[in-house]
Amino acid sequence: MPKIISKKYLSEKVVQLEIEAPRIAKKRKAGHFVIVKIGKEGERIPLTISQADIKKGTITLVIQIVGVTSNKLSKLETGDEVTDIVGPLGNATHVSKVGTVLCAGGGVGIAPLLPIVEAIHKAGNKVISVLAARNKELLILEKEISASSDQVIVLTDDGSCGQKGLVTEGMEQIIRQEKIDQSIVIGPAIMMKYASMLTQKYNIPTMASLNTIMVDGTGMCGACRVSVGGRTKFVCVDGPEFNAHDVDFDELLMRLGSYKNEEAGAYKKLLI
């Protein structure tokens, strides 16, 4: 079973695990994710691969502690084993040289944004990153994103770090400042919805990376379906990245709440 090589808290509710997975490390590209399951009784959840080290044969996952499985994951320590991990899944980000790219990350969405920022920076694009979080404690990976960005704007809801405001305010500021050729938004569905509406207003091609409920992650169940341009797509095999302007974010938000009642029960039980 894959071993945990290192563990680090990025904030109180966000933990970073480096896991031994040489095959996945070798194959993964920016945009890929894995499915993880903890223990015999565990559920299968998708997590984006934030970084990989081919030499060490490890991948890095960043986990926001929100539910049963993320909680179980956060309780694992260096040297512990992850019961099941499979990947890399999904389609890799299409990376090409387009000019200036606006990358917006919200909350824990900054973790999956990191490999994409690195890849498009490496491809010779000018990268401007806008990072947003509720407060200073919840802002993660600012240093790493900065290392691959030409400019970074940080915003927090309460102004405890960077500017006070929402991600869209930071994005609009940049859009007014210079010509943006492409935009990438990753974060909570509600944030992506508004970020996408904004870039649509300015006619900027925009890509969103969707994080839906999943079971198998290989196209077998359809739990991950979402409407894109009026057609049903499976996020695990057709995505996870889609043209943001075509995504039905309201449906996505609705479907994310599918098991709200069932899950709340299980989570409460775990916390007792």
Partner: peptide, 27 residues
Amino acid sequence: NYIGVLSANEYLTRVNLMGATKEDYDT
């Protein structure tokens, strides 16, 4: 795509593979 409309594969997988109806299973 409403909540509560799902494929047989998803339904059966949750129950048979993931143990959704068993005590202490997370799915």
